[in-house]
Amino acid sequence: MEPNDYLTGTPTWCPGCGNFSIRIALSQALAELNLPPKDVLLVADVGCGGNENNWFKTYVFHSLHGRSLPPALGAKIVNPKLTVIAQAGDGGAYGEGANHLLHACRINVPVVYLVHNNQLYSLTAGQASPTTGVSSKTVSTPFGVSEVPVNPLALAISAGASFVARGFSGDIAHLKELIKSAILHKGFALIDILQPCVTLNKVNTFAWYKERIYKLDKPLGKVEAFELALSDKLPIGIFYQESRPPYYRAPLVKEPDIDVSKLIAEFM
């Protein structure tokens, strides 16, 4: 397969937006793993990244804001043959839909969750999100953010996620490899993708990230990974990966119907 086999249309993101890179990295990962587009289901959120629903030539389910994980889980449970990729922004994934993330970590359905984390609500033009830094001034926090930001990686590790990674939209080759590892992982996989909002985020710019980012060589132990996630450092790569039995059911799309008369007779 070629990356273009998964793509359609012309995205309308701002020039220089990290969403372009994430789209390319995902299409390259799918192509290198040779997954037929008919067997790929992309579940999109609502937001700038969520608009990608129009620009992939796979099966797509465009869900509600914060709610890309539940349909992804439902789909994968009934048809395990599908490669299911759920995507969301930091608002959807760590705000509106944070509860779904917590439980997806527990249930371990093999779904890849790509979170486009630009530390702002961007499609609504720049309000503070759950990952905006303390004291940041935005249109919704003119006097500065007072809340401690959500730490996605520490959250996922503590909730029992079996694959936790961080990527950077500015390094497509690295991100592509992360996505491939996540797809091949037998269980739920979170990749928090750092992505500068070139239009609205004047703090966490491309240059800001470039200065701080470095690559991890290999996954760490659980405690070590948790400590690193809580630190001020910004490594990218797989923080933590464990082998835990994934949720699995025989593909229900093929199961024969049940003879209900036997069940009814039990009420005689």
């Binding site: 869900s63 709610r67 349909p71």
Partner: peptide, 14 residues
């Protein structure tokens, strides 16, 4: 989550 999981499953034809 319940109804959305069910919609995801339904999307797959069950």
């Amino acid at each position: 989550s319940g109804i959305l999981m069910a919609l995801g499953a339904s999307h797959c034809g069950v």
